[in-house]
Simulated assay, not measured.
Amino acid sequence: MASAFVVGDRFKDKVAELLENSDSPMPQHLRQELEKTLEKAEPKTLSFGTARRLKKYLQEKGHPYFLHELLEDSSLHLPEFVKPPRNPELVARLKKIEAKLANEEYNRITRNVNTQELSHSGVLADIGLQVRSAKAMVVTVFNFLVTVVAAFACSYMGSQYLFTDTSARVISAVIAASVVGLAELYVLVRTMEGELGEP
């Protein structure tokens, strides 16, 4: 927060003139403060208290200029902000909280990783699992085809007792094979849904 002015050349000239003028006696304390201000190294600063006393002196003695005229080319002196040192206990707590948050974030990211499943032979175990899955799929498709072909053959052979015409026998065999195939597909889909639905 500002507590002083950085005085300019106008102030220096007018105050030097005031100090040399002996017509109106200036209070000793104010004179010493002004002399000290003019003797300071650059930047020369004038405290607010000294500025108030100077204003009061100028008003009482009826001088032809006012304080704001003296300070026209002056500026506020803003001291440099000194950052207070941080509390070591607070710093330690903040580091502890940051470490905890980082650990929680790490656990959130790696929650899907199961370290017990990882082993040196993990890749081979995955390949074996995929081979077994593919083998089961091939067996299922083969079973489906054999069932449909067998249903067709059975219907075709059995329909010779009902129909004498070959086209009627083929149509009845296709219908029977289609019904058996659809039933087999339904059972297959339900089985796969059950396997996929398991956790």
Score class of each variant (00 low, 15 high):
123 V>I: 15
107 N>P: 00
77 H>A: 12
132 R>Q: 15
44 K>W: 07
53 R>E: 14
161 Y>Q: 08
67 L>Q: 05
15 V>P: 04
142 F>H: 06
124 L>R: 08
183 A>S: 12
111 R>A: 09
65 Y>H: 10
128 G>V: 02
194 G>E: 11
197 G>T: 08
2 A>T: 12
32 Q>T: 07
9 D>W: 04
100 K>F: 07
94 L>V: 09
157 M>W: 07
125 A>D: 12
137 M>A: 14
76 L>V: 11
98 E>Q: 12
21 N>F: 09
4 A>D: 11
18 L>I: 08
13 D>T: 06
10 R>S: 09
20 E>H: 06
30 L>Y: 05
163 F>G: 05
145 L>G: 00
55 K>N: 15
36 K>W: 06
6 V>P: 00
199 P>F: 12
96 K>G: 13
194 G>Q: 15
194 G>M: 14
36 K>C: 09
147 T>F: 00
90 L>R: 08
15 V>H: 05
27 P>F: 07
22 S>Y: 00
67 L>Y: 12
129 L>R: 14
2 A>C: 09
133 S>C: 02
74 S>W: 00
57 Y>A: 06
126 D>A: 09
127 I>H: 06
189 V>P: 00
132 R>K: 15
121 S>L: 13
197 G>D: 09
74 S>C: 06
10 R>Q: 10
99 A>Y: 03
75 S>D: 07
70 L>M: 15
103 N>P: 00
